[in-house]
Amino acid sequence: MTLLAVERIKLFSTRSPWWCMALALGLMVGFAALVSASASNAGELSVPMSQFGFTFALAVILVLATLSVTTEYRFNTIRTTFQAVPSRTSALLAKTTVVAFVSGVLGLIAAFGSVGIAMLIQPDANLALNSEADWRQVAGTGLITFFAAVVAISAGILIRHTAGAVSLLLAYSLVAENLVQLIPSIGRDIHQWLPFNVANRFLTGNPDLAQVVDGPGSSTSTLAPWAALAYFAGFAIVMLVIAIVTAKKRDA
């Protein structure tokens, strides 16, 4: 518990996490307000449409999680942490737990806040969470941001440089996965198993790209939604294990 308290203090004692949290929340709720205000009538608005800003908020959360690690490497405070805590595994797991929990709660607040602002702007719209798919689309955002933060922390531990880690994560999650589909013959098959594409499968629950789905991008994955979440969680855990093993073998 002491390690968790220390990591909580370190996370909230600097300005960048606060700015990132405010930006992620503002982007997701702001896009929901924009989409709701732009709808010509209440019938056009749906629960998935209220989550239109998820991709942008996720990008900011990835930056937040990465900075929580790379900032320590930049200012060499990670060296002090490893000297104070005999087990690097414990220290890194504590950091991961705190940052991932904060990211998950932030994603949850942003998702429900988006639905809330949409209801305020379009009170006659059908935005009630009446199905498992609706609940997964909104409440499931917290689970995806939780595990996405684990992936970002792992990348930060492995790369250690803010610019490199942030650039890699954003380029991969926003651009590279979609570009894989352009590879002749095997591109679409590979894309089905890429982690952020699979994460969208959990949220949208619909692999049929012929159907218009607003909010988080439609997924080409054919996994069942909860199997998709398990896959994404497994990927995050594997990344974290690799990062911790690497951190233990090299100098701080």
Rank of each mutant, 00 (worst) to 15 (best):
V238M: 13
S218Q: 14
W226N: 06
A227K: 01
Q211H: 11
A224K: 10
S219A: 11
Q211I: 15
W226S: 09
L223S: 05
F235H: 06
F235L: 13
F235Y: 15
L240V: 07
F235E: 00
A230S: 12
S219L: 08
L240H: 10
V238Q: 09
P216L: 11
G215E: 10
L223P: 05
S218L: 05
Q211F: 07
G217I: 02
G215I: 06
V238H: 05
L223A: 06
P225N: 08
S219F: 08
P225D: 02
I237W: 02
T220P: 00
V212W: 13
G217F: 05
D214A: 15
S221R: 04
S218K: 07
M239W: 01
V213L: 11
D214W: 13
F235N: 00
D214G: 14
T220A: 12
G234K: 06
I242N: 04
V238C: 12
G234I: 03
A230I: 10
A228Y: 00
M239Y: 00
S221A: 13
P216Y: 09
F232N: 09
I242R: 07
T222S: 08
V241R: 12
L229G: 02
G234V: 08
S218M: 08
V238E: 10
T220Y: 03
W226G: 06
Y231I: 04
D214E: 15
F232I: 14
A236K: 02
P225V: 06
D214S: 15
A227T: 07
P225F: 00
A233L: 09
A233H: 07
A228P: 03
S218R: 09
I237S: 00
F232S: 09
F235S: 06
L240F: 10
A230W: 04
A230N: 00
Q211E: 15
L240I: 08
P216I: 09
T222G: 07
S221V: 01
A228S: 15
A224F: 11
T222K: 11
S218A: 15
L223T: 05
D214P: 01
I242Y: 01
A236G: 10
V212D: 12
A233N: 07
Q211D: 14
Q211W: 02
D214I: 02
S221T: 05
P225S: 06
A230C: 06
V212E: 13
V213T: 12
A227C: 03
A227V: 06
D214T: 14
M239P: 00
P225C: 07
F235T: 03
A227S: 15
P225A: 03
T220H: 08
A236H: 02
G234Y: 06
A228T: 03
F232P: 04
A224W: 08
A233M: 14
